[in-house]
Computed example of a mutant assay.
Amino acid sequence: MNVKILVDSACDLTEEQYNKYGIEMIPLTVQLDNKEYRDGIDITPKTIYDAMRKGKKPMTSQVSLQTFKSIFTKYAEKKQPLLYLAFSSELSGTYQTAKMMEQQVRDEYPDAELHVLDTKCASIGYGLVAIRVAKLANEGAKMDELIEMASYHATHMEHIFTVDDLNYLYRGGRVSRTAAFVGTLLNIKPILHVDSGRLIPIEKIRGSKRLLDRMLEIMDERGIDFENQMIGISHGDDLERAEKLAARIKEKYPVKDVIIEMVGAVIGAHSGPGTLALFFLNSSYK
């Protein structure tokens, strides 16, 4: 029996992609106007972005212990191997919750082939890892091989992104009040990346004109083997700029493919509208 790949909604893949690659998705939740919604199921990212533009402040929650227990137990009872690729533990407590329930289910089902892996990734960077591992799982790869492949792609997945308004990162505790105020006042656009799961600033750009140029320069400096890998772009309700970035990448590099998706409701609730992110490997594709 093939290993089943489980992800959470912070990978920002679509229902079509889940079905295509045989991936099961478990949603995080977002609260808006005193109602709770399942990310990727009950609410669209655009609903969150439109609300944020009106000054609303959506909140998010991780996956519950009981939800993990139900899913892990289901696969243990079927004796089907399950690999859960988790959203970065530096950005959510979901991974730690899953690890707690992994041990409990293992105690109840000692023979269960159940593994939880912290990808240290987010959004489509996380999604690209899931797609690669799911393809391999569908070919019949064993658990050890899948864990090795997931770890490799997660370790070498670059996340280069910018946000339109630093105040959203401030609300989420990612930048200081002073940095958010000064950045907004001076029209400073930060370029950040994800290092070991954490958001780390790379540099600051005055205005928006040089952003795409600099993101491409960073891709050129850090990336490798573009012709064999899938490149990911995610955006906070800014498809026009995402498509412009994709077109420039295709002009410059012989890439295998570029996928563009909107940043999901849960991550978008912290990064805000206007976010633009670029994902690629900094090592040879496997």
Rank of each mutant, 00 (worst) to 15 (best):
A98L: 04
L128D: 07
F68S: 01
E139T: 13
K74A: 09
R132D: 12
A150H: 02
G93P: 08
R53P: 00
M149P: 05
L146K: 05
Q31A: 12
G140S: 10
A150S: 08
T60G: 04
N19I: 14
V63H: 02
F68Y: 13
T44F: 00
S61M: 09
D33N: 12
I48W: 09
L146N: 09
P81F: 09
G55C: 08
K120D: 13
L32D: 00
E139I: 10
L65S: 13
K46L: 11
S64G: 09
I43M: 04
E139Q: 15
I131T: 03
E113M: 12
R132L: 11
K57F: 12
V105I: 14
T94D: 03
E108W: 05
K120R: 14
D39S: 02
Q104M: 08
E90G: 13
H115Y: 15
K69W: 10
V105N: 00
Y75S: 08
G140E: 11
F68I: 00
Y49P: 05
Q103A: 14
N19E: 15
A51D: 01
A134Y: 03
T29G: 02
T67N: 11
A150G: 10
T119P: 02
K56E: 13
M25R: 13
A134Q: 06
S89A: 14
D111I: 05
A130V: 02
K35P: 03
E108M: 12
Q31C: 06
P58K: 06
E36T: 13
Q66G: 14
Y95P: 05
E145S: 13
Y37S: 01
N19C: 09
L83V: 09
R53N: 09
P27D: 03
